[in-house]
Design a protein around this nucleic acid. Structure first.
Length: 419
RNA sequence: GGGUCGGUACCCGAGUGGCCAAAGGGGGCGGGCUGUAAACCCGCUGCGUUACCGCUACGUUGGUUCGAAUCCAACCCGGCCCA
């Protein structure tokens, strides 16, 4: 089954930041058996984004080489909250939230991983069964000094930010996962390095061969700088609609192009090098390169051809500043009760009602700023509109360059009470 | 347990009796410009009412005062030091 080729090691480590150690990895690969390659993921958010996809693709590579992906859903550790790379304690999540996230995660992960060589485990399976005694034994395996070696812990400690003791438990629990699933290799982002190494330590103490640790880089977020993360909002979700993905990718700074080609396209190295060279020597315009990148990524997650369609829509909306088709806009049907006693509604209120802004006041501001249009005409003042003056087909309300809603009166479609 | 410093809008952070819906920065939003949803420049950034009115907001609860984010008390939470 497993066809280990001399070059396989190189492919598997392509794009990796740390490999601890290459020698151990080569030795394990030489055993000629499917390795158990672990990747932990905490169901703390609902979207998987391109940043996390980097490590998922690496895991897929291992699968393609005949190895078994062991995906750990950290349903138990999510209750603690992984403090990695964070300057603050993560608020604990409810069991229901975690459950919901776990479900959507598995769904999304299947877009990248090969379901045939995938083992999905939940760490509540073993962590949830531990008693206080077991936990004490685990905590005695490490020291405070060792924990404070971790960059984010020491930074927080030095700056006087709180660190809860449960957070110290996190690396230990993640490491214990490795023991429980007998991981041969564990993958993770570079911010996971410390945790991954704890896994090695615990495995050794338990008499297992320590796992090989392989880290992948953290993909910078859309604006550059900070890593891509849901909480910063600088991410592209792999399950997002094509147009969203395309547009977001078009917004990255030019100098991020090489990194994004490297880590989001799934291309072979030679292809990546070629495009990057073309951009560097000026034969490929950055805009064209970015379009290529965006099309590639959209195709990757929405099927061949999706990228072209997304590009066409992008050009329509952002280059030609045209509105999308009406049926792609939010549809809002007003109720009689949305209007005042005189049967009218102010534009500011209308904006809020249709969900384009979050409050009447914000709507009023938007009008002052000149960013509101009705049927293509700029709204100059916050005038009142009589519900019955709204044409049966509805009118198109636009806020800013990219938010639209089709608004209908109460006597147009039968349905009422749209929120 | 004792001492001490602190808890301000989405985040960071200034403000120590009225001029505070609260400086400044970040973020976000709008506009201009652009190959771009980048960069840069300008503007906006509590809610409701609609015109200069009301409501809510500076950890919580009470109090002092004509008037408090600002003073007092208790409590909750956090940092540091001592034990």
């Amino acid at each position: 089954m497993l066809a280990w080729k001399p070059m396989a090691g190189h492919e598997l480590t392509q794009g990796a930041i740390d490999v601890i150690s290459e020698k151990e990895l080569a030795a394990k690969l030489a055993e000629g058996r499917p390795l158990r390659v672990k990747l932990g993921i905490d169901p703390t958010a609902s979207d998987i984004h391109l940043g996390f996809a980097v490590v998922l693709r690496k895991l897929r590579q291992f699968q393609d080489a005949g190895h078994t992906a062991v995906l750990i859903l950290g349903d138990f550790t999510a209750r603690i909250g992984d403090p990695s790379g964070r300057s603050a304690t993560r608020p604990p999540l409810s069991a229901a939230e975690i459950e919901e996230h776990a479900r959507t995660y598995v769904e999304q992960v299947r877009q990248i991983l090969d379901a045939d060589r995938l083992e999905v485990r939940r760490n509540s399976e073993w962590l949830g069964a531990m008693g206080v005694e077991d936990v004490l034994r685990l905590t005695s395996r490490s020291t405070v000094a060792r924990m404070l070696e971790r960059d984010d812990f020491s930074k927080r400690y030095k700056s006087g930010a709180p660190i809860t003791i449960t957070e110290f438990l996190y690396p230990l629990m993640q490491g214990w996962d490795s023991v429980m699933v007998h991981a041969d290799v564990e993958l993770g982002g570079t911010d996971q390095l410390f945790n991954l190494l704890v896994g090695r330590q615990l495995q050794e103490q338990e008499g297992q061969a320590p796992q090989v640790v392989l880290t992948t880089p953290l993909l910078p977020g859309l604006g550059g700088g900070a890593k891509m993360s849901k909480s910063l909002g600088n991410y592209v979700g792999i399950a997002e609609p094509p147009a969203e993905q395309f547009g977001k990718l078009m917004s990255i700074p030019d100098d991020l192009l090489p990194l994004y080609f490297q880590y989001t396209t799934g291309w072979p190295q030679s292809e990546i090098d070629k495009v990057n060279a073309q951009v560097a020597n000026g034969t490929l315009h950055p805009n064209a390169a970015k379009r290529l990148l965006a099309r590639t990524v959209v195709d990757l997650y929405h099927g061949p051809g999706a990228g072209d369609a997304a590009e066409a829509q992008f050009d329509r909306v952002f280059k030609a500043h045209e509105a999308p088709p009406r049926d792609e806009m939010a549809q809002v049907t007003l109720a009689e009760s949305d209007a005042g006693d005189d049967g009218t509604i102010r534009v500011s209120r209308l904006l809020a009602k249709s969900g384009l802004v979050t409050s009447n006041r914000e709507g009023a501001r938007a009008i002052t700023e000149g960013g509101v249009q009705i049927d293509g005409e700029k709204v100059l003042d916050d005038r009142a509109i009589a519900l019955h003056d709204i044409p049966p087909a509805g009118m198109v309300l636009q806020q800013g360059k990219r938010k639209w809603a089709v608004v209908r009166g109460p006597d147009s479609g039968g349905r009422t009470g749209a929120e």
